[in-house]
Design a protein around this nucleic acid. Sequence first.
DNA 1: CGCATGTTTGAGACGGGTCAAGCCGAGTGG
DNA 2: CCACTCGGCTTGACCCGTCTCAAACATGCG
Lengths: 235, 235
Amino acid sequence: MVKSVTLRDAWSGEANCLNCSLRASVLFAGLEETDFERIHDPIDQFTLKPGTALYQAGDGAGFMFTVRSGALKLVQYLPDGSQRIVRIVRTTDVLGLEALLEESYHHDAVALQPTEVCRFPARAVRELGVENPALHRELMARWQHALSEADAWLTELSTGSARQRVSRLLLRLVRDRKTSECQLFSREDMGAMLGVTTETASRTIAEFKRQSLLVESAPNTFLLDIPNLRRIAED
Amino acid sequence: MVKSVTLRDAWSGEANCLNCSLRASVLFAGLEETDFERIHDPIDQFTLKPGTALYQAGDGAGFMFTVRSGALKLVQYLPDGSQRIVRIVRTTDVLGLEALLEESYHHDAVALQPTEVCRFPARAVRELGVENPALHRELMARWQHALSEADAWLTELSTGSARQRVSRLLLRLVRDRKTSECQLFSREDMGAMLGVTTETASRTIAEFKRQSLLVESAPNTFLLDIPNLRRIAED
DNA sequence: CGCATGTTTGAGACGGGTCAAGCCGAGTGG
DNA sequence: CCACTCGGCTTGACCCGTCTCAAACATGCG
């Protein structure tokens, strides 16, 4: 169940931000070349295998991250040891905003898929952010986005029957994607996202498959019957 | 059930920020007198009766608010009409951060108790925030705080049995308060906070009263048996 | 091949949902 | 002043969904 893998050996080079393919949509979108020169510490890229923890709750928070590809889960624990996934972050999302203000991270961040991230020092963002209105604005937008996600996670994924929650999660996974194709997480992760047990997650997915609401197009990849899932999600 | 009251008639004067009793802990804590002079629009104070909506989801978001006393709930709705309370805000908390970036509010904000708020234009914060590092930092801290609250709301109040959730809510209400005294919300609101029905909220509270985990010290005000509630919350 | 890990399925128990009735205190109006 | 209503709280009985515990299956890997 718990296979702890560390960040070691995940380093895959120093980033070239000026030529970054995500340049337009990334936290540093508004920065000029002269601004970049002021970031003296290097920006590194990492490639994470599924299951690898990028950081853990309580770790000293010196860095922030941008997701280049893949997805990570943010996990929080209860005193009794049970865990809850409070958000997932994907391409162009920023991880570790709390590093700007706090000493340590608030969640475990664990890769769900093969994932590439860029790492940069929180200090650099702090310093640039004070005087750069574009970055300042971008930071606020990131925070606001995370907050909206958190609220939606609560109202959509933690409310209603298991069937409704699973439907809403599935729909959420393909939102603003061209195709209705998506690859699912492990049943255990789905349970932790929805606040239900692994078995219930599994049963519900299995039921959806039998009803052809989900059609397996490749191993663990499914085409969704969006209209009907939407019906289940809302009624 | 739904008694809609509007903001009209809630105005109770223009605020004197320089002599504000909450000055040290408020969003504008770091502002100098000269900064205040740059806020040309007036800062107004309002007094809300319980049940009054300060704003509603979708309303044009031109203002932000600071809570001077009392408490408000932030409510979000699902397509099927069911509602979920995603946060509560209390003294010194800021409401309506989304006004800095978005056109409209994301929640209904409704007073739970007699509540005083100060209202100020989002535009003023936007303008001052760009060049004032103290305000800039304060804004980030507010956002981070809201995000932490949202995450805690999910892991603590939407996970586990009804008894656990109610215990955690009660403990949360008296956290960093000198006394263990607290006044409860309506059962309906408690249900909407915890993702359970009104009846389940009522049954659980009634059971706690019978077990003397809650002792009524005044109408609808209770003393908590913190150690035993904590035991229930965690096991 | 056999072990390990994750998924599916089953059977039974139990918690919480649902629907309905009774209760209590605060207003309201005769 | 009292009878009456009304909203919120409590309680009851029943049912359904989800949890729990367990076993059977898959799938990949040493």
